[in-house]
Computed example of a mutant assay.
Amino acid sequence: MTSGSLSVDALLDKMGTELKELLQQRHIDNPLIVGIRTGGVWIAERLQQQLGQEGPIGILDISFYRDDFTQKGLNPSVQPSQLPGDTEGRHIVLIDDVIMSGRTVRAALNELFDYGRPASVTLVTLLDLQRRELPVQADVVGGTLALGPNQLVKLSGPEPLELTIRQRT
């Protein structure tokens, strides 16, 4: 596919159903839902509604935890992370929009552990681009996508949430 859009709502419905089942299998009643800024937060908000949970979600900005921080420098839109309480002993559902290399997830886990040692972390992603550099695997995936070398995927939102695939310019 060279350009186009994917149905985010259909992917979210699938993810919500799979996540509910997985949490039931693991006997997890009230996980802390944490989104990685920005797209992961939008998805976390939608999944929280599907799960019927109330209360604030956690928001991670992993900018300072990235392993390429010294190469890229500080992103001008860095904001503080916000977790409603510590992570010590909590079951956490960590949500991102896209998983590709695994480096964002590694950075998010490092930051989460700075807040405390979670009982468990369930990883959820809207899209898996299957280009791993680190051994990271999501527990719940909306869909997989193989992009060409000059393609990129972008999530825009929060309302409406829309995925677009386009050629790099």
Rank of each mutant, 00 (worst) to 15 (best):
S7Y: 05
S7T: 04
S7P: 11
V8T: 13
L11Q: 10
E18I: 00
L19E: 00
L19Y: 03
L19N: 04
K20Q: 13
E21L: 13
L23S: 03
L23P: 03
L23R: 02
Q24A: 14
Q25L: 11
D29L: 10
N30Q: 12
N30S: 11
P31V: 01
L32Y: 09
I33A: 05
V34K: 09
G40L: 04
A44L: 08
Q49C: 05
L51T: 04
Q53H: 15
P56G: 15
L60H: 06
L60G: 12
D61S: 14
I62H: 02
D67G: 10
D68P: 08
F69E: 12
T70F: 13
K72D: 10
L74C: 03
P76R: 06
P76G: 04
P76C: 05
S77F: 11
P80H: 08
P80I: 08
S81N: 07
S81V: 07
S81A: 05
L83H: 09
P84C: 10
D86F: 02
T87I: 06
R90E: 15
H91R: 03
H91N: 14
H91W: 02
I92H: 06
L94I: 05
I95P: 03
D96K: 00
M100W: 11
R103I: 08
A107P: 09
A108F: 01
N110A: 09
N110T: 08
N110K: 11
A119G: 02
A119P: 03
V121N: 01
D128Q: 03
L129E: 00
R131H: 12
Q137K: 14
V140K: 04
V141G: 05
V141E: 08
G143T: 05
P149M: 14
N150T: 12
Q151G: 12
V153D: 10
V153I: 15
K154M: 13
K154Q: 15
L155G: 05
S156P: 00
G157D: 10
G157Y: 07
P158R: 05
E159D: 15
L161F: 09
L161M: 12
I165M: 00
Q167V: 07
T169G: 15
T169Q: 14
